[in-house]
Write a protein that binds this DNA or RNA. Sequence first.
DNA 1: GGGATTACGATACTATACGTCTCGATTTGT
DNA 2: ACAAATCGAGACGTATAGTATCGTAATCCC
Lengths: 214, 214
Amino acid sequence: MGSGEHSAGGVSGDANGRGPEAVGTPSAGRPRSEEAHQAILDATLDLLSEVGFSALTVEGVASRAGVGKATIYRRWPSKLPLVVEAFGRLPAFEDVDTGSLEGDLKAMLRQYLENFLATPLATVYPSLAAERSHNPELGQLMDPLLRGRRRPLDAAFERAQARGELAADVDVEMASDLIVGPVAVRLFFRGTTIHPDMVDGMVELALQGIRRPA
Amino acid sequence: MGSGEHSAGGVSGDANGRGPEAVGTPSAGRPRSEEAHQAILDATLDLLSEVGFSALTVEGVASRAGVGKATIYRRWPSKLPLVVEAFGRLPAFEDVDTGSLEGDLKAMLRQYLENFLATPLATVYPSLAAERSHNPELGQLMDPLLRGRRRPLDAAFERAQARGELAADVDVEMASDLIVGPVAVRLFFRGTTIHPDMVDGMVELALQGIRRPA
DNA sequence: GGGATTACGATACTATACGTCTCGATTTGT
DNA sequence: ACAAATCGAGACGTATAGTATCGTAATCCC
């Protein structure tokens, strides 16, 4: 099909340093097509949002991307790492600095909900969670990604601490679990939809706590 | 193999009323073996905790239970409802009434964590969550179960409200999401283990809120 | 420029598993 | 006795993961 696909080649950052994701990256012969790489990831995300993780087939990805199966397996040892890499391109929290912790959290959660959690793409999340329970290797692949995706949330807490708005000894990890947890449970475990307007109430409850005497 | 398996027949409660779970329950001929039914569910739970949901095979269950595949498919239309019914037998929250909301929540969460969440069986949870994202029917099967499993938690909130310990207009559903959510996220999404001693801090944070000025 | 090397898309192949079906034997109701 | 529905066992068709092999195309090294 196309021609002229050399590009600056910044994507496969580990080059031939044998990164953990590449199946093997030789240094002679025809180089791997960056076009095919992109097409595979795009097709993966497409199909992921259409049929979900469990119904995603490698053959389907190959066909949609217009590549052979070998071209996929040459890059990823199995379906799982492929989905993980595609997952890494999905929208995450975006940093918003409104000046107050409450404003930051509300804005970021709302944005994340609308941009990702409310789309069919969000189903990748529980699928990968299920998989990691019996595949520790997957956990190691995902954890850096997950931390990065949540980083803006942690940053908001740290800004609040620097401002003196929040005590310095508040456990930021636990706090962000308290923000994210209820949303995840409602969406993925209980199958509830969350209207964007609901995030304000949820953030407020997490910030002020359940305890409120009559 | 065995003999004498009639029993009081309390398990298949809907009898021949065509409940939503039985594939079809005729009223003539040889009755279905209650022994086989139990053996199938036991084998399902065994294998579920050993290999997880995605690696669970119906053939494996049949072999482990010592029954034919037809005996399984005669009772459950597919692997999914079988796992759901097995899920229904798993330990849930157990009601504890200590006299205070904080005491109730800490005791129940700790008990649930030790009895279920810290065991390999807990992996059924994210697996079913993943599946329901693309299978609304599964959601309908699970939701009553999930509500029932969480009922003791809601009851504790309602007791606190009746006692005047908690304002009557607190959203109990949201509150219990705030208790359960962080645990679920840590366990299933982030792959963290939770030491039983950590539940106290988590409950306290949910009760008093993140906001604590410097 | 030419040869070695590797990737390309396509497709045949093996192995596994779901869900259906049939088998002879068994257990019930009438 | 006879009909009906069960039992465990396993063959069968379909689908998919992952491997291997095809002839062709791109790039590196000499």
